[in-house]
Design a protein around this nucleic acid. Structure first.
Lengths: 201, 201
DNA sequence: CCATCATTTGAGCGATCAATCAACACGCTG
DNA sequence: CAGCGTGTTGATTGATCGCTCAAATGATGG
């Protein structure tokens, strides 16, 4: 029952950090969710911060199975995949009455002076997310202008997602997210249109 | 010396909430900054949350003098004002080694279950920011396509700012902010280009 | 000079926090 | 059965939290 203990702690903490944030989640909160006692937790983790690190590592290692695969099931178009991923965040907003958001984004703004390991793990999570979008943009090939920086554009997609969630959460209205996605869509449409007359050269 | 006391508390709290966040700022932190004692603070504020409310009201009432006027001094072009405002956030990032960001955005993601008054004040702050951008877009007139939703575009500018700051902070690199602004700039350029052949109609 | 009220003082309250640790339970190996 | 290492228990610690309140102080008007 010992390998489960660690895993149970991590997943309980993942939920709670997402629900309440890191600082507002007490060790007691995690313990009461798992029927585990404090001694066991501190047997596996030196401190609360190391639980956070394990959570961030779990997010990092599970981005494919937990996030991308569910969002992309049945979607093959590369640009369609980008907006399908955004739509899965929209669904998340809807199912929580616009109260919760991206766990990494929330942590990134909550922790003002994070430990370096924590900061790097958050950065790694963002980087992997961007990398997945960038792969879609590369796959889209010449549907997008040749001189467009795929990496920068992928970062911009992350920005649109995070900013949209922030506003939707604050206003408790998913329409704020939708309007942001609409603007991004128009941006993509114009890029695709600009890429079309490549033969005119 | 009494009207000053309240004011001093608010401004000290404004600084600290911005530096450390709301939850990580203790009443003792505020007191030690102001040489005020706890009894005085609780004479003016029923509780810590009411200090936050006063801070958010101060931001709301001061958006013009504290934020827009400094950013727009010497800038008259409406679209130029939008990017001048973004540039003032960039300067903020630079002068703090990319550690701090938009105080409203940070609070919006830190507080997961905010009091309704707090949430509405954060929403009001966002709305006022967006309104200022929207006014620029309206002022830009037919430089932007007639069918473009000015309000939605202004919200998208807020998103680009917040998302850019989030990534720059997390990576401790202002280049993430710059690339986002670059994308937004391209978006605006394409909109302006699309608005030009209006006479072709 | 007194009365009144707003303001300030600061020790101290109970609650909660992250973290500790001695004692114990269990499974495995010799 | 003995010895040992891994895992578990849960009462307890000291620090810190937001907040209280009786008493002192200061300012204002009659």
């Amino acid at each position: 029952m010992s390998p489960d203990t660690r895993r149970n702690i991590v997943f309980a903490a993942m939920d709670l950090f997402w629900l309440k944030g890191f600082n507002s989640t007490s060790i007691a909160d995690i313990l009461s969710r798992t029927q585990i006692h404090s001694g066991s937790l501190y047997h596996f983790f030196p401190g609360k911060q190391d639980v956070l690190i394990a959570v961030l590592e779990t997010y990092r290692d599970g981005i494919g199975e937990m996030l991308l695969q569910p969002a992309w099931s049945g979607v093959s178009d590369p640009i369609g995949k980008i907006f399908a991923l955004l739509n899965s965040y929209r669904t998340h907003l809807l199912t929580t009455d616009c109260t919760y958001g991206c766990p990494i984004g929330s942590l990134a703004l909550e922790l003002h002076e994070p430990d370096e390991r924590v900061r790097l793990l958050m950065a790694e999570n963002f980087a992997n997310w961007v990398k997945a979008i960038e792969a879609c943009l590369v796959e889209a090939g010449d549907r997008i202008p040749r001189d467009t920086d795929r990496h920068a554009l992928a970062e911009f997609v992350l920005t649109a997602m995070e900013g949209g969630i922030m506003q939707a959460r604050t206003h408790r209205d998913v329409a704020y997210f939708d309007r942001n996605v609409q603007c991004l869509r128009q941006y993509f449409d114009m890029l695709e249109e600009r890429a079309k007359p490549a033969r005119v050269h």
